[in-house]
Write a protein that binds this DNA or RNA. Structure first.
Lengths: 128, 128
DNA sequence: CCTTGACCTTCCCATGACTGGAACCCTAGA
DNA sequence: TCTAGGGTTCCAGTCATGGGAAGGTCAAGG
């Protein structure tokens, strides 16, 4: 199948698939006319990537995951370790965002939000 | 004062300050030797930006916030609206990350993480 | 006077993971 | 034959910096 169909099946934009080929994540064959030709194997790989990306794994993580996936003898501990490191990062990002959110919430609460110019939000930004 | 001192006081890298000048957020004067000269006003503005950025506001939001800050007659409702939109975005990002984290948590839990190759994480990525 | 070291300047390139667009080629159907 | 809807490559842009080269400036010390 061509890239459009592969994109539909894998749930990825065609542009993204071309990019993945550029950086060596997939290597579809080419037809005589130069079109990329995708088989089920490639589409499966692309769907794998789409899923991993949707879980927030970086492209580098995805590369690792793919190679682990294709290594029939790997230890599940390696995969689990990778996932755990990633989970930790996500926890950190959530924590950071929650901090921001809490501060923002307080400021929003403190601000009347009417036509008057007095604004605790700007006061805070300006250094209290 | 020169850019280094301004950077120290505002809590921003000098590079970032130069960038902020490039995109028109600040406009320090120049000494005869070409060095940027910052007064307390500029440093105050930079600290304002640093604080707003640390709360996750985009550069465009910061531009808006600065202009609201410098408009003595603005309605606090405008600032509050901006902050609320931003808070909503953060909420969305947190929600998205929490979803990822939950799925990751389940997968990590399900994976033995030993020397055997059987791995629920890879199974999930491969489409269940 | 010279050197050293810490500043400062501009300029260009790189990041991550795409996305948009231009300019062009290929193919099937009316 | 024309058109529509694929496909191709290549270049540039996103966001908010960070890194580093090549060079100018300045104060202190020998």
């Amino acid at each position: 199948m061509n890239i459009g169909e592969a994109a539909r099946r894998a749930g990825l934009p065609a542009k993204t698939i071309r990019y993945y080929e550029d950086i060596g994540l997939v290597a579809p064959h080419r037809d005589a006319n130069g079109y990329r030709r995708f088989g089920d194997r490639e589409v499966h790989k692309l769907a794998f990537l789409a899923r991993a990306r949707s879980l927030g794994f970086s492209i580098d993580d995805c590369r690792m995951l793919l190679s682990l996936y294709e290594d029939r003898g790997r230890a599940s501990a390696e995969v689990r370790g990778l996932a755990q490191r990633h989970a930790k990062e996500i926890d950190a990002r959530i924590a950071r965002l929650k901090e921001m959110r809490a501060t923002l919430g307080e400021l929003i609460e403190a601000c009347a939000g009417d036509e008057r110019p007095d604004c605790p939000i700007l006061k805070d930004l300006a250094g209290g």
